[in-house]
Amino acid sequence: MADDDREQSEGAVSRRAFLKGGAAATGALSATLMPGVAEAQLPLAKDADPRLTTVDLRVNGVAYRKEVPNSRTLVEFIREDLKLTGTKVGCDRAMCGACTVILNGRNVYACSMLAVEVSGGDVTTIEGLGTTDALHPIQQAFIEKSGFQCGFCTSGQIMSTKALLDKMPRPTEDDARLLMSGNLCRCSAYKRILESVMTASRLLQA
């Protein structure tokens, strides 16, 4: 994503930043057709730009409203606009699972959805589970069983575990393998991830 877009979406309070973002967003057309137009003559109404949309999203119980370029992915919205950086980006192509979050009760790849597409939705990220002082039982289980090595895939693994256990509180190991199959672990901690899922199921029953 272009720097202009980033500047735009991070609040975009300054008029200069807005104009810069707007010009970038409308692209070659405004740049070539109106090379000499003074800033003051450019349109003021941001919402009139069909390439920007105001997104409404509940994330971890908090309502956010933000205008972003239509091309903003959900994971960019979460990490860059909301600064919730617990969700990771590995491949950015629905091929690793690091970006997994829960959208309206289902685990999804936040790298492969647009923020505008999920506007009106309800998202839970890793920050919505526990805190360092009060861990969620799933987080506790991953720590107890060392369900990770480097930890990069872990927030995604934990969000898939949450979706899995919400749907099926007492999975068999085979159920768990199947429902965790959309999260790769480059460190190959799979055996311990599976133990963590099964332990989390027990902790949540207790």
Partner: peptide, 9 residues
């Protein structure tokens, strides 16, 4: 098809 996440999308 794909994975649980892809089937959810």
């Amino acid at each position: 098809v794909g994975t649980p996440q892809i089937r959810n999308m």
